[in-house]
């Protein structure tokens, strides 16, 4: 399982419509609308890098109003005691 964070910058006035489009996509574990340098943080889990490619370069890129997509693949992850396996 490959995990990644995808950070999006949106154009003003389209947030609601873009979120509705994002909600239709596969592989997404959470969607957060945030304050700060980016507008939306997605956490995703895919089985292969090709699925991540499809999600970012084909699905997200085709949504009108998303200005910038930054993808960060998780190389190492640590969970708090509460969240641990």
């Amino acid at each position: 399982m490959i995990k990644a964070y995808i950070m999006l910058n949106l154009s003003l006035g389209n947030t609601k419509k873009i979120l509705e489009e994002i909600k239709k996509l596969e592989y997404i574990d959470s969607i957060s609308v945030v304050t700060g340098p980016v507008d939306v943080v997605l956490t995703v889990s895919v089985n292969r890098l090709e699925e991540l490619y499809n999600l970012t370069y084909e699905k997200l890129s085709s949504i009108q109003g998303i200005n910038n997509i930054s993808t960060y693949i998780v190389e190492k992850e640590m969970l708090s005691e509460e969240e641990q396996e």
């Binding site: 995990k3 960060y72 693949i73 998780v74 190389e75 992850e77 969970l79 708090s80």
Partner: peptide, 9 residues
């Protein structure tokens, strides 16, 4: 902090 990830890029 519940989760921390070292990421690529």
């Amino acid at each position: 902090i519940t989760r921390i990830s070292a990421v690529s890029g």
